[in-house]
Every structure is written in structure tokens, then in C-alpha cells.
């Protein structure tokens, strides 16, 4: 079940922009780790466990590789651990590498969540807001791709049966046939669109997504949390020495607001799941 999808795509996009904005730019290990946890929990609830474990293990490899290689590229930092070929390997650059790896893997997992929520329909809706014509192009393209592949397969199979056995040549011939067919059809399609009055008036865009009260609520909550975590942000610097702002009531507010922001999808999904079970039990 994926109930987050029910929100308006604009609100959802803004939510992902907020989370990614903080994750990419703050470069703060505490925020990165909590964002990672929120995203992983959400993925575990919504998608199947195996794919989550697969991407997590890929993430661990990336994390280790970035941590180990970072001292090769950056020799800044004051705590020298040892030398390789007269190049300093510092503790700070190792830490920086680990945070960098965490940042990269966190963004990968958040984009996994993004792909779970944002299908092509929502993308087309967003494009329709800016440019209805481009939205039309996108949805036509999405229809064309599978149909071109299908007609390529048919032509290719026929070519094979009539004895065209050289694979590369057969592929190119069949592709060429698809090109001819599709370009010719495009002219016919557009003439037919014209004769039915397409473009006679300004293009509008229909979508079934509405902006409801819960969308407004979601937008307000997430924007407030973003503002709080930006205003009360804590700085981390890595070079020359590893320093961070002291932990006090202000910085804790900043951290907590981002943690809540990052856990919204998971909490919402959990809440809807419980509600669903409850409603079923009442039947």
C-alpha cells in the first residue's frame, strides 16, 4: 500500500525538494543519518524487503569506497594518521569521506522513495502546470516507446523467419522500418489532430489531482519544519579540524524538526496502515 501517493504531486515534489535540499547542502552527519533512517523505514513499509536490502548493500559498498578514497584527493586536515608516497592521510579527510558517502547514499535512498511515489502520471501533471504542450509530448512519448519496441520485435521476428540471419544487419533493417513507419504515422496523427481543431484555442490541461485540505496541511507542516531546521541549523566544518556547533536547546530544535520532516512518509504510512487494519476489524 502506498498512501502517500494520494497527496497532490506539487505538494509531494516540494516535500522531496525540502528533504533533498537539507540532505545535500547541510552536510551534517546527524541529519544525514536520521534522513537515511527515515527513508529506509519508508521503503521497507512500501516496497518489498529484498529490493531494499539490495540497494542498502550497494550503499554500504559506495560508503566504504568513498571513505577510503577520499584521503587520496584531499590532504587537508590537521590530524595526520600516516603517509602514503609523501601524501598525508588525515583523520579529517577520512571523516569527510564518510560523511560524503553517507550523503551520496542517503540521496540514492531518497530517490528510491521518490521513484516509488512519483510515477509518470504525476510527472506529466507537473509538466502540465508549466507547459501543457510538453505534457502532451511526454504522454505521447510514453505511449510510443512500448509500441515502437513491439513493432520492432514483430518486424525483427519476420525478418528472421525469411532468412535474414545476420543479427546486426537485421536489427538495423528492422529499426529502419520502425523509423519509417513512425515518422509517416506522426504526420498523419498531427494532420488528424489539426483537423479536429487542436491548437485552435489555447491548450488546457486536465488532471484528476485536486488540492485538498490534507494537501494544505501537509504543505504547511513540511514548510514549517523546513524553515525551523534551516533557521536553527548547526554548522559542521571538517577542515582544518573537525568542529561543530555546541548542542543546546536551539540546535536540538533544528535537529528535531528535520528528523520529524524525514519521518513524515514513514509515520503517515504507518498511521494509514493501522487505520486500514482497524477499519477491516470493524467489518
Amino acid at each position: 500500500m502506498n498512501t502517500l501517493k494520494n497527496f497532490n504531486p506539487v505538494v509531494l515534489l516540494l516535500y522531496f525538494v525540502y528533504v533533498l535540499f537539507i540532505s545535500i547542502f547541510s552536510f551534517n552527519p546527524i541529519l544525514l543519518a536520521s534522513g537515511m533512517l527515515g527513508a529506509v523505514l519508508y521503503c521497507l513499509v512500501v516496497s518489498d524487503k529484498r529490493s531494499v536490502i539490495k540497494s542498502l548493500s550497494a550503499c554500504i559498498v559506495i560508503l566504504l569506497a568513498v571513505t577510503v578514497t577520499n584521503p587520496l584527493f584531499s590532504h587537508n586536515g590537521k590530524t595526520v594518521l600516516f603517509f602514503i608516497n609523501d601524501n598525508r592521510v588525515t583523520l579529517e579527510s577520512l571523516i569527510y569521506g564518510a560523511v560524503l558517502g553517507l550523503c551520496i547514499t542517503e540521496v540514492i535512498i531518497w530517490f528510491k522513495c521518490f521513484n516509488l511515489v512519483f510515477d509518470s502520471e504525476r510527472f506529466i501533471f507537473l509538466f502540465g502546470k508549466i507547459s501543457p504542450k510538453l505534457a502532451l509530448v511526454l504522454s505521447m512519448t510514453l505511449r510510443f516507446v512500448p509500441s515502437f519496441i513491439k513493432s520492432f520485435r514483430e518486424i525483427n521476428r519476420t525478418q528472421k523467419l525469411i532468412g535474414n540471419s545476420r543479427r546486426l544487419k537485421r536489427y538495423l533493417n528492422s529499426f529502419s522500418a520502425v523509423v519509417t513507419q513512425s515518422m509517416e504515422n506522426s504526420i498523419i496523427t498531427s494532420d488528424s489532430m489539426n483537423s479536429r481543431g487542436y491548437g485552435a484555442k489555447k491548450r488546457t490541461f486536465y488532471s484528476r489531482f485536486r488540492f485538498t485540505l490534507s494537501d494544505a496541511l501537509f504543505l504547511i507542516i513540511s514548510t514549517t519544519l523546513l524553515a525551523l531546521s534551516v533557521i536553527f541549523k548547526s554548522d559542521f566544518t571538517y577542515y582544518p579540524g573537525f568542529t561543530f556547533s555546541e548542542i543546546n536547546a536551539v540546535s536540538v530544535t533544528g535537529y528535531l524538526s528535520f528528523i520529524v520532516l524525514a519521518f513524515i512518509p514513514f509515520i503517515y504510512e504507518l498511521k494509514e496502515g493501522i487505520r486500514w487494519k482497524y477499519l477491516i476489524s470493524k467489518i
Partner: peptide, 25 residues
């Protein structure tokens, strides 16, 4: 969005679809 004929619009969809379909083909 401002100035494009229907033919260009459909042709754009076809060329884009061909380039993506080519990747699979």
C-alpha cells in the same frame, strides 16, 4: 509552448520515443 506547430509537437514525441526505444532495441 508558445510557438510550435502540431507537426513539430508530434515529431518531437516520435524522435524522443525512437531514441529511448533504441536504447531497449
Amino acid at each position: 509552448e508558445k510557438n510550435s506547430s502540431t507537426r513539430r509537437l508530434v515529431m518531437l514525441a516520435v524522435m524522443t520515443a525512437l531514441s529511448v526505444a533504441g536504447r531497449f532495441i
